[in-house]
């Protein structure tokens, strides 16, 4: 085989970006057997326990005893949680393994494009996967509850919140995945996922925290709060939510912050 000519490639950056994305989606397709149960299991169990078991055993949850209202607010929270966790984990877990142990990211790092583009592709691929997770969880959260649920989609709000949530989650995954050693990945669940979830306004609205002023202020650093509130704002009827302007601004700010931190972390790991 003769050596390559010295011709300059056309559009090197985005061609490689598209191919890297194609690779990640191909891998998702191969992993569907694991991806689907992994995505559906937790929301399905939460819906079952909170909206079927608890009401029948007389366990009060949701504050008001109105289980229909609770199912309604839970829907937004569950979609937000699935998106956030899939975005975070589908980016962070393979990345920390590939960077730390298997070296298999090597060929993609050598793809003829800027390192920042390769990092950005990770965010986009993770974002698409979390969108997919949100889409398959929605019917579970909307139709599985045994109690009535009050929905009305505000499409434009839904679209904006979905895109920003998917993107911010995957960018958070890149930020964490480039900073955590593979051997420390198990602590992600305890130190990242659980606080994100429990203090992410999934099971309660942010407004409901008013009696605990300090907590209401503290959870504002949690990006999942804005995702849960955003999905409730765009899907649920009769549920109080944060002003849309605050939700959008925070999600944009987190997206920018995590993009900068993620790309910086990635560059630091692959270049020396």
């Amino acid at each position: 085989m003769p050596p390559a000519s010295a011709q300059r490639p056309r559009r090197p950056n985005w061609t490689a970006f598209g191919a890297l994305l194609l690779r990640d989606l191909t891998v998702l397709d191969k992993d569907l057997k694991e991806f689907l149960p992994n995505t559906l299991m937790q929301p399905a169990m939460l819906v079952f326990v909170f909206t079927y078991v608890f009401p029948r055993i007389g366990q009060g949850i949701g504050g008001s005893g109105n289980v229909g209202r609770f199912s309604t607010l839970l829907l937004g929270g569950l979609v937000a949680q699935s998106i956030a966790f899939q975005g975070l984990f589908r980016v962070a877990l393979p990345l920390s393994r590939e960077l730390d142990i298997t070296n298999e990211l090597e060929d993609r790092v050598l793809a003829p494009t800027r390192v920042s583009v390769i990092a950005f592709e990770k965010i986009v691929a993770g974002g698409l996967q979390s969108l997919f997770a949100g889409l398959i969880v929605f019917p579970v959260a909307a139709f599985l509850p045994s109690t009535p649920i009050y929905l009305r989609a505000h499409w434009s709000t839904l679209a904006i919140v979905t895109v920003l949530s998917c993107y911010a989650s995957a960018a958070l995954g890149l930020t964490i995945g480039t900073r955590i050693e593979a051997r420390l990945v198990p602590i992600l669940v305890g130190f990242v996922a659980l606080p994100l979830g429990f203090f992410g306004a999934i099971f309660y609205t942010w407004d409901a925290l008013t009696p605990i002023g300090w907590l209401k202020a503290a959870v504002l650093v949690n990006p999942m709060v804005y995702m849960s509130e955003g999905f409730r704002a765009s899907l649920s009827i009769g549920v109080v939510h944060m002003p849309l302007g605050a939700i959008y601004s925070a999600l944009v700010a987190f997206s920018v912050l995590f993009t900068v931190l993620g790309i910086r972390g990635f560059t630091k790991r692959v270049l020396s």
Binding site: P12, T26, T102, E106, R108, V117
Partner: peptide, 21 residues
Amino acid sequence: PALVKHFIGVVHQVNTLDRSL
């Protein structure tokens, strides 16, 4: 560097194959 990568092929001493493929 992005253009340089177009002109090089690299074989490392450790296995860098993509195990997902």
